[in-house]
Computed example of a mutant assay.
Amino acid sequence: MRRISGFALVSLSLKKTRLIARLKGFEKLAVALSGGVDSALLLAVAHEVIGDGLIAVTAGSPIHPQQELNDAKKIAGMLGITHLVLDSDEMTQPGFLSNTPERCYVCKKHVFSGMLTLIRKTGIRHLAHGANADDVGDYRPGLKAARELGVVAPLMDAELTKPEIRQLARQRGLPVWDKPAMACIATRFPYGTPIVLEKVVQVRDAEQVLAEAGFSGCRVRHHGALARIEVSLEDLPVLIADPMRSRIALRLRQIGFLHICADLEGYVTGSMNRALTPGAKD
């Protein structure tokens, strides 16, 4: 460990050692596998440490793009790990559908509870998820739900950041090492806007249009009749130049949006959280 300006910099090697040591505390473990890079790395390292005592479990739901489930299946299959899929059924939960600032807490409490029930039928008591050190800064009530249920976060415990996780995943040859982060579709709606399946499908289809056009890691925020598109600042000139602009606008109009705009700030993680007052984040 070395120090710069009074701050200790923990080496990546030491963080890997911490992660392995944390995982050695479990004879059996289930990993909540989302299809993203964080849980994929966690699963790969846990497989080396725990071996046959490890399984993966993924929530299947309309609020997650189908590609997420496909990627989760691919990762578990590549590693030779038993993979369970839970019908998480969030769209039946009033506390989720009302879309208050506690939506993520309600959702994670419901999903993790379902996962724990499922894995305990196989004789496994402990569940881990892929939260990392970078997740501490933003408003993430789902972390509170995980802690209350005893769901562990080994990557966070090891203080691994997203760039470090990508680096380790690339070294291991995991195909999702550079996959853009993909939050659930519920994050595309302003708090207080009820979440209904028809609107979820609109967002899913609109983001698929953008993905097929070559925009990676984009978001379509749903503001009623208005679709607010967020892409990287590098991609913004491409989005607003014809013929791309007119083609995207036409496709989103066909999906059901009356007005389509591009956000001049580009893609901003957690941009909907700006509407929260300090008290709502407590």
Rank of each mutant, 00 (worst) to 15 (best):
T58L: 00
T92H: 11
M182A: 15
L97N: 04
S113M: 06
D138A: 07
T82M: 08
I185P: 04
P154K: 01
I124D: 03
I20C: 00
A8F: 06
Q93P: 01
I4M: 06
E198V: 01
E102T: 12
S271P: 06
P94V: 05
D71W: 08
H223Q: 08
A128I: 02
R166C: 01
V136S: 05
L54I: 03
K199R: 15
L143G: 07
A153M: 08
A145V: 03
C104E: 11
E159V: 03
W177E: 06
F96W: 03
H129R: 02
P154C: 07
L233K: 15
V37Q: 00
L84Q: 14
M115I: 08
L233S: 14
Q208K: 14
F215N: 00
V196Y: 08
T277H: 13
N99C: 10
L79I: 10
I20G: 00
L226N: 11
E90Q: 09
S98Q: 14
D263N: 14
E27G: 13
L9K: 08
V176M: 02
A280N: 08
D235G: 06
Y139R: 11
A72R: 00
Q202F: 05
G279P: 04
C104R: 05
R147C: 04
A241D: 14
I50D: 01
E148I: 06
D157S: 12
G266M: 07
G192D: 11
P141F: 09
R251S: 08
R253F: 03
G266Q: 06
V45M: 12
Q93E: 13
L127D: 07
Q167K: 12
D89I: 07
T277K: 15
V57A: 05
V37K: 02
T17W: 01
L236R: 09
N132M: 03
Y191F: 15
S5F: 13
L19P: 01
A30C: 10
A275W: 03
S98D: 13
I124M: 09
T92W: 00
V176L: 07
A32S: 15
L41N: 00
V238Y: 04
A206L: 05
P62Q: 10
V136K: 12
R125G: 05
S98L: 13
F215Y: 08
V106M: 02
K199F: 09
C184H: 01
K24N: 15
L79T: 05
F96M: 02
R140L: 14
G35M: 02
G36A: 06
R125Q: 14
K24H: 13
Q208A: 10
R245G: 00
G114E: 10
G192P: 08
K144R: 14
H64I: 05
I81K: 04
D205S: 11
L12Q: 12
I81L: 02
L160M: 02
R247S: 14
Q202P: 01
P194L: 10
G114M: 08
G214F: 02
L9D: 02
G6L: 08
E265R: 15
L149E: 06
R166W: 00
L250D: 09
L79D: 10
A249D: 12
R147F: 12
H64D: 10
C261W: 10
L23C: 04
L168E: 01
H126Q: 09
L41K: 01
H222I: 03
I75T: 00
I260Y: 07
Q167N: 02
N132A: 04
L127I: 00
C184A: 08
A249E: 15
I63M: 13
I119G: 04
K179T: 07
A213F: 00
A275V: 10
I20E: 12
A181R: 09
